[in-house]
């Protein structure tokens, strides 16, 4: 059976009630075309498991798609707090579990190794696991090493029902190549029960095989793949296009107010991804392209292009 599908077919795999994790790093690499399609279909009751992929978390929180958030930290780099995320926790609308960065990454790693639990020390001594008032905040077992006397904590492996990543290039076998920072995408992909990839561009498998060092997530782990150009917008893709900071500023402003954010969401989910790109316009999309050698944006000046 072919792994290749359309964005819509891949989103069909996500059902209400599932646990889900998204790739992403600061203002880059986030599969936001997928997230917008989830919101357009109004798929709700999701449990988001994410280390720091703020974009997916904040958009889905603002859309009312989430039942629970399991995470380490969400912030909009350079713009402060993630307002939708903060709001759903402040109003008690969404359950949550806080982890340190490494503790949650360890839960993914355990799942990737096929083990039932992770052994960590990162949550010792804080209120993250539980506190004096007897409230247990995350599922854990206090444990003393049978090979010594060190105190450790056991945390259950985290295997999301669906892991969604966005990459630069891919092929029909589900191989995904990513350039630049990959954050914890490899751990997420190893942990997921079903891994879905969207990529900027499909290439022939021979091209992938000629450049295997760039294959971050091998097809072995990927069940479904779709070609979704500009699938990370308004976040950026290293060496392809910059984060769209004008759009990010609009988003950050809208996210301060539920009504304004609802209007933003209605606007970006009016049609499908092609409609979304058409409304952004060719000029804007081309202006986000970066120099493929330098990897960053070139500004147009009277004397030509300038880094």
């Amino acid at each position: 059976m072919s792994k290749v599908g359309t964005l819509e077919e891949l989103v069909d795999l996500v059902k209400p009630g599932m646990s889900i994790s998204f790739g992403g790093f600061a203002h880059s690499l986030t599969p936001l075309a997928f997230v917008r399609e989830l919101i357009r279909r109004d798929i709700r009751d999701l449990e988001l498991i994410g280390i720091a992929e703020a974009w997916a978390a904040d958009m889905l929180a603002g859309a009312g798609s989430l039942r629970k958030i399991v995470f380490s930290n969400f912030m909009f780099e350079g713009f402060g707090l993630c307002r939708n995320f903060s709001r759903v926790i402040e109003t008690g609308a969404v359950e949550f579990e806080d982890y340190s960065h490494f503790a949650l990454a360890s839960r993914f790693s355990a799942a990737g190794l096929g083990l039932p639990f992770a052994t960590v020390r990162s949550l010792l001594g804080s209120d993250l696991a539980g506190s004096d008032d007897g409230v247990q905040r995350v599922r854990h077992v206090d444990f003393t090493s049978p090979f010594g006397d060190e105190r450790v904590m056991l945390l259950p492996a985290a295997s999301p029902d669906v892991v969604v990543i966005h990459g630069h290039r891919g092929d029909e076998h589900g191989n995904v190549q990513i350039l630049g920072a990959t954050a914890v995408i490899e751990e997420q992909a190893r942990a997921g029960k079903t891994v879905i990839a969207t990529v900027e561009q499909f290439v022939d498998s021979a091209e992938i095989r000629a450049t295997p060092n760039h294959t971050v997530v091998p097809g072995l782990l990927v069940s479904h793949i779709a070609e979704v150009p500009y699938g990370a917008h308004p976040t950026g893709m290293f060496r392809l296009y910059d984060a769209d900071y004008d759009h990010i500023r609009q988003y950050a402003e809208a996210s301060r107010d539920p009504a304004a954010f609802a209007a933003y969401l209605a606007d970006v989910t009016t049609g499908d991804h092609q409609d979304y790109l058409a409304r952004l316009g060719v000029r804007r999309l081309l202006n986000l392209r970066v120099d493929p050698h330098f990897g960053y944006h070139l500004e147009r000046t009277e004397s030509g292009w300038r880094a």
Partner: peptide, 20 residues
């Protein structure tokens, strides 16, 4: 107690730093 007055960014890796 209960839902926070202000929900902040989260533990980040600071718990890891503080432990180790």
């Amino acid at each position: 107690e209960g839902p926070p007055k202000v929900r902040l960014t989260g533990p980040i890796a600071q718990a890891d730093h503080a432990v180790f």
